[in-house]
Amino acid sequence: MENKKTILDIHNFSVSFEQYGSGFKKTTLPVIHNLDITVHQGEMVAIVGSSGSGKSLLAHGILGIQPYNATLGGEIIYNGEVLTEERKKALRGSEIVLVPQGTSYLDPLMKVGPQVLKGKNDKKLKERLDKIFKGYNLRDNVYNLYPFELSGGMNRRIMVSTAMMAQPKLVVADEPTPGLHMEMAKKVMSHFRELADNGAGVLVITHDLEQAIEVADRIVVFYAGTTLEDADVKDFEKEETLRHPYTKALWRAMPKNGFKFIDGIQPYVKAMPEGCVFGPRCPHFTEECKCAIPYKNVKDGRVRCIKAEEN
């Protein structure tokens, strides 16, 4: 993995919204801040975080389809070059693809076949699509059906097909599995695994840690709009190999590891704690943590905790 080329390098990324509060006071809401992620060729990275932590926004930010009132900060390097808004526009749909969250991302009034082909009537493209559909166990007649005539699982496979059509170098999958039963979810995830094995960089955004551990190469833990830890999937075998107290808490919350939860809730964007975002819930929190916490390298991974030690 180490010698593979870096396809996506997100550094100090932020997404913020300007909001008008009471009395025309303009406030800036940094929904995502200090976010760092790298994805290599042929690698599947899972971003794991709970709902409402701004994960979808990250996906949309990479594609350049964030809401018009959002401001992006930091740096995204794609394939060795800075990914500007113009470059996003040029590359999205061809080199960089998004697999969206739910069926609402398909036009309800357009047959899925033409929809995957973007309305183009091209014989060669259609043949390719037929092959992809076949690979995903979708019958031939699916081409002429509407999204409402397909099951949730089939619609997800249709959306994965849109990614396959493009032969992408980078796949961003935004919560591709909720609402699917275990079997189906595993199957959908395996499609992404295939994409990664075929050489694409895959970034899967999910809230399902267990599932992520099963298929991904690396796990990035996302909390309150920032990345707290970047760990190899192997590190999740034992609690001791993990670096951040939040990751450890997540680990302990997994059913097979005791199902133990920690108190408190994720801080709201408007009421971010001083210093470490996890501070108020952290058992090891001290005065020293009330400062800007660097993202430092610890044991082949990265962690945003000043207490994490190399040992």
């Binding site: 949309h60 594609l63 389809i65 526009k89 590359l91 999205r92 749909g93 061809s94 693809v97 998004l98 969206p100 969250q101 739910g102 609402s104 991302y105 398909l106 036009d107 309800p108 009034l109 357009m110 929809q115 973007k118 309305g119 849109t162 493009a166």
Partner: peptide
């Protein structure tokens, strides 16, 4: 502002294409 138009945009469809394929239809 719908999700499916957002997705079309993410797939690199032009505004004209989006209107032709999804806008008028809906």
């Amino acid at each position: 502002e719908s999700d499916y138009v957002l997705f079309s945009r993410a797939r690199g469809e032009s505004t004209y294409n989006i209107i032709k394929n999804h806008g008028i239809r809906n």
